[in-house]
Structures are given as C-alpha cells and as structure tokens.
Design a protein around this nucleic acid. Structure first.
Lengths: 232, 232
DNA sequence: GTGTATACGTACCGGTCAGTAACATTGTCA
DNA sequence: TGACAATGTTACTGACCGGTACGTATACAC
C-alpha cells in the first residue's frame, strides 16, 4: 500500500530510465539476472498487455477522468481482455495509482526540461516551464493536471491514486522552494508557494475555458519573482 | 438546457433572496400572486421535498463529488423517495446543475461579504476574502470549489453542471478585474487574472493537503497587489 | 515428447446505477 | 365534500460496473 507511493514520487529526478516504475501486482523483479533484453514469451510485435493497458488507461483517465472510464473501455482500447488487466493490477484503484506514477514521471521530465531544454538559471527555468504550460493550458481540450484532478475525484485519503498525487505535490512544493531559494528570494517559502499556487491555478482555469486567466500567467510569474527577488 | 445556465449565474448579486433559484423541471412559477407565505400543501414540519433534495445533494456532491454519489444516497439523506427527485429534476445531471446554481449563490454571498462584513475599499475587500478562504482551505476535509471540481468531473462542454460552472467563472473573472481596476492597478486585467489564478490555486491545493501553500496565500495576495498598484 | 510456467481469452457473476410505471395516501382549498 | 396537488410506496428495468472461475495457446527445460 504505502510502498507504492514511494515508488517514483519522492525524487525530482534528474535522469529518467524510460522504463517506468512498475508498481504492479506481480512483484517478480527476480529472474532479471540474465543479461539479454528479456523479451520473454509471446509474440514479438508490440508491448505486452500490461504496458498497453497502462498506456490506454493513461490516455483515457486523463482525458475523461478516472471515475468516468470503466475497465472495459480501458482493455478494449488496449486491445486486450479484462483478466489481463487484473493479472497485472490488483484493482481499478491500483491501475489508477499506476497511471499516477506514470504521470508523475512524465511531469518531472516536462518540469525539469521545459520545451526540451535544460536551464541553469532558476528564474529562466521556472519562467520557461510556465510559458510552456500556459501555452498548453489555453488550447482547446486542455484537461489540467492529472494528479490534481485525481485528488478531486477521490477525496478519501486512503485512496491509492490520491496518495501518489499527494506525495507528488509535496515534492513539487519542495522543488519550487528550492528554485525560489536559488533565485535569491527574500522569502523563498513564500515565493515557492506563490509559484505553486499560480501553477495550480493554471491547471484549474485552463480546463475551465480556453480564454481564461492562464493567458496572463507568464506576466504574473514575472511579477511575483521580480517582487520577491531583490534587485542586484 | 441553456436557459438553466443563465438562471442565477450572470450577476455578482448585491442582494440575495433567501429563495434559491429553482431551475427545476416544473416551470410553474405561476400561481405566486397570492400574498401569503405559500406554504402550500403537505405537512408543516420542514421544507418540501425538492428543497430537501437540493440540500442533501449539495452536501453530498460537495463532500464526495458528484459522480461518487448515487441518487439513492441523495434521496435517502433527504428523507424522501426517488420518484420525488425525478418529479422535480429531469435527471441527475440537472440535479447537479441545480447544485451548481445553489453553490453559485452561496459563493457570491461569501465573496461580496467575506466574514459577514462588507467592504468599500477594494484592496481590503479582496484581502478579506482571501484571508477567510485560505483559513478554511487549510482545515482538514476542505474540498475546494464545488464549481471547479464539477468541471474536473465533467470534461464535456455540454454537461449542464459544467455550463453553470463555466458561466460562473466568467463572471468571477470580470468581477476581479473590476476590483483590480478600482484598486488603481497599472494593468487591471493582469492583476485580476493573477488574483483568480491565486484563488483557484487555493481551491486546488487546499484539498490536496492541510499543510499546503494556501498558508502563504494572503502574503502572496498582498505581494501581487502591492506590485501592481502604484504607490500613492 | 512431456512437464511446467507464462500470457492470454471466453464467459460469466452479483451488485449498483439512473430512471420509471402504477397506485395509494395525505393535506389544502373551494 | 370533492377536486387537486404533492408526496409516498412498491416494484421494476436494462445497462453497466468491477471482478473472477476456468479453459487455452505458446514456449522453454529436460
């Protein structure tokens, strides 16, 4: 239960293995000692069932919401059958948690390298992320942050997906405080929180309309930073 | 369909009748010409079925989410039966829309008179709202904004509840711009958007953890306003 | 070949969901 | 007293939900 949470969420992650955290029911990381690619059984064409299910779930859960999507739809889109899902995931809730972990990994890639570039200056780093984010957020069909959305869908604290989301947000908060500190902010905690509140505001309003306040987000971010960091 | 949206959402509402907008299936506002309290039929103890249903739905939908709550639960809590629900509301979606309209009314009361007081100075007005809001937002069990949450639960544009929420957010944005303008902001649109992004950030992060960035919200609001309004 | 383990499919389960049909009961007013 | 409006009572529907019992195909080991 708790193990799952700590699986991929507790590190801002400098480098990522393309192999996502499994977090599945089957705990057999054993038998990995053989060197070869371990393609194991079954047909060579395409990823195995569990991976196809993860991908299918990620897309559907993000676009339509977790509660709105049934497991039948997930497996149909994945081109597999329901028992395959339940062989790899203990329940729909656990599948949702896996989706959260995948989302988390994806997030950090986008956050640490906004627009595919890396930044040494923390101010430019944050502004680049917000620029990219707010551009996405004003486009039609934008659905905000999958992690924040899951928190809305599942108010119960012990929900596995929610736990992953909560852990993620905690790390993000710490990371933003870190960046605010690097900028030389007078009160790094306040600037970090300000940026987090701003980012969550973009997530939220971005899915409420295409023509929303996310348009002003970059200007607001600059305002916040410049008001918080003493001039050189 | 569209009619429902425009029923209560398009006015910042200075004064409120305690009578909520009905928006129910039965359009007979007629017969109101008689002066008396119009307690009409049924037993004297307590409000009539439709009102009890609205109250029950509001509480449950807010706390647990709309999708998570079945109509059976709503009617059980209301102490009525299912046919009574469907006599007053065409569908669960329409009941959700009614919940949105009630929420909207309630919101404007809280927004225009934060903490039960009225304010003439726009800066003090906004800061008071954010003070009250962020205090609520760091308490356990806080569930954010019911309207924003509904938008997360229902991504489809034509969902009745979502339409009410969208209309509401549009009005709120305008109102904040208005207040920013009254403060004498250099760029009222930007300050208005900044405040809206901040507020939505509080809604969102407030339900993610009790110990979140909403703690800093008041300081952030002051920072934003002071950086946007020229000193006298 | 035969055993064994793996990956997958077919067919099904009981429960819950939103919504309805038909009828009985109660209070109000004319 | 009788019409009417509002609600309750009971029982039902068909769709969908998450989840599972059980059989099958493939591949490697010996």
């Amino acid at each position: 239960m708790k193990k799952a949470v700590e699986q991929s969420v507790d590190r801002p992650a400098k480098a990522f293995s393309s192999e996502v955290a499994t977090g599945s029911r089957r705990e057999n990381a054993s038998k990995q000692e053989s060197g070869a690619p371990f393609r194991s059984h079954r047909n060579e064409k395409g990823p195995r069932a569990a991976d196809r299910i993860r991908a299918s779930a990620s897309e559907l859960f993000y676009r339509e919401g977790i509660r709105a999507v049934g497991v039948d739809e997930v497996v149909e889109r994945a081109g597999v059958t329901k028992p395959s899902l339940y062989r790899s995931f203990a329940s729909k809730d656990e599948l949702a948690a896996a989706y959260m972990r995948d989302y988390d990994l994806d997030f950090w890639e986008k956050f640490e390298n906004p627009g595919g570039k890396s930044y040494s200056d923390p101010r430019e780093h944050v502004l680049a992320y917000i620029r990219v984010l707010s551009t996405r957020a004003v486009r039609e069909g934008y659905r905000g942050c999958g992690l924040s959305n899951a928190t809305v869908e599942y108010p119960a604290r012990d929900n596995p997906a929610r736990q992953v989301a909560e852990a993620h947000k905690k790390v993000l908060r710490k990371r933003l405080r870190e960046l605010a500190s690097s900028m030389g902010a007078r009160h790094p905690a306040v600037l970090g929180d300000a940026l987090l509140l701003l980012i969550e505001g973009i997530y939220s309003t971005g899915q409420q309309s295409e023509d929303g306040p996310a348009q002003s987000a970059l200007a607001v971010a600059k305002l916040l930073i410049d008001a918080s960091v003493p001039k050189p």
